[in-house]
Computed example of a mutant assay.
Amino acid sequence: MANIEHKLVASSRKEEGKGASRRLRRSGQVPAIVYGGHQDPLSIQVEHNHLWHVAQNEWFYSSILSLEVDGKVQKVLLRDMQRHPYKQQIMHLDFQRISENEALRARVPLHFLNQEKSPAGKAAGVVVTHELNEVEVSALPKDLPEYIEVDLSDLKLGDVIHLSQLRLPAGVTIPALAHGKEHDLAVVIAKHARVEEEPVEAPESAEVPAAKVAAKPEGEGGDAKKK
C-alpha cells in the first residue's frame, strides 16, 4: 500500500494563553502545538475552514502529515483534537513530530471487505459484528499504513477473527499481542441473531373457590351468641 503525502499548512504564533487563543478563534484560526522529535515545542495556528475540510478525511487521524509551518515542512502525527461541545468548531490540535528512524505507535482504522459475499453475510439469521474498528500498531514512519484491510470472504457462522489473524503489511506489528493471549482480542464475530421472545401475557387470576377461603373463627362475623 503506497503512502500518499497529506499536507497541512500552518503558521507560527507567538502569543499564547487563553485570551490569545480566543482571539485566534474569533479571527478564524485554530491554535495548535507541535512537540517531540528532540526539539522544543512550537506554537502554531491553522486556518479553520481549511482544517475543517481536511478533518473530514479518515487519513487525517492516522496518517503521517506533511505540516508546512512558515514554508518549512516537518512530518507529524495528530495526537489530540479538541472540538467545541455543540458548534461545528475545532478548538485546539496537538501534533507530534516524527523521526524517520524511530518506530512509532499509531491507531490505524480497519477496512472490512467482502462481508456481503461471505457465507455468513449471505445467511439468514446471522449477525456479523465488528468488535474493533481500529487497532494500535507499531512501525517505522515509512511503513505506517493508512488502514488495514480485513477480508471477510470466507467468514462463516461461528467464526471469530482475532488480532493475531490480521494480515499486516511488512514492518508493522501489533504491540498488544506481545502481552499474552488475553490481549488477542476479537475483531469480527459471526453469530446467530438474537430472537427476542414475545412477552407471554399472564393468565387472568381465577376466582378462589369458596371452599379454599379460610373459615373465620367462631364469633367473628357469625350470629350473635344466644343468651
Rank of each mutant, 00 (worst) to 15 (best):
A55C: 09
D223K: 15
G17P: 03
H130W: 04
P203I: 07
K181Y: 06
A176V: 05
S153C: 05
P141M: 10
P41G: 03
A2Q: 14
A215C: 04
I174Y: 09
L42Q: 12
P217R: 11
D40V: 04
D40S: 14
G171Q: 14
A193F: 03
P31W: 00
G171K: 12
V46Y: 00
I44D: 00
I174H: 06
P145T: 07
G36R: 00
K87G: 10
G17W: 07
M1R: 11
V9N: 11
D184A: 05
K226R: 13
R13E: 02
A224Y: 08
S21D: 09
I4T: 12
A20G: 03
R13M: 04
P41H: 03
G221S: 03
I98C: 09
G171D: 13
D184E: 07
K225A: 13
Y61Q: 02
D151V: 06
N133D: 10
L168A: 12
Q165T: 13
H92R: 12
N49R: 13
S21E: 04
K142C: 10
I44E: 02
N49V: 10
E100H: 12
R79Q: 15
V108S: 01
P217G: 11
A123K: 14
A139Q: 05
A55F: 10
Q45A: 09
L144H: 02
Q82W: 09
E16K: 12
E100D: 14
G71W: 05
H6N: 07
D154I: 06
H111G: 05
E196G: 05
V127C: 06
E5N: 09
K227V: 09
K216P: 01
E149N: 15
E15A: 15
I148P: 00
W52P: 00
R105T: 14
S11V: 10
I189S: 12
E116Y: 08
V34T: 00
G221C: 03
Y61G: 01
P145L: 09
F60G: 00
F95R: 01
A139R: 04
G28C: 02
E116P: 01
V126Q: 05
A211C: 06
S62E: 01
L42S: 02
L77W: 06
Q39E: 13
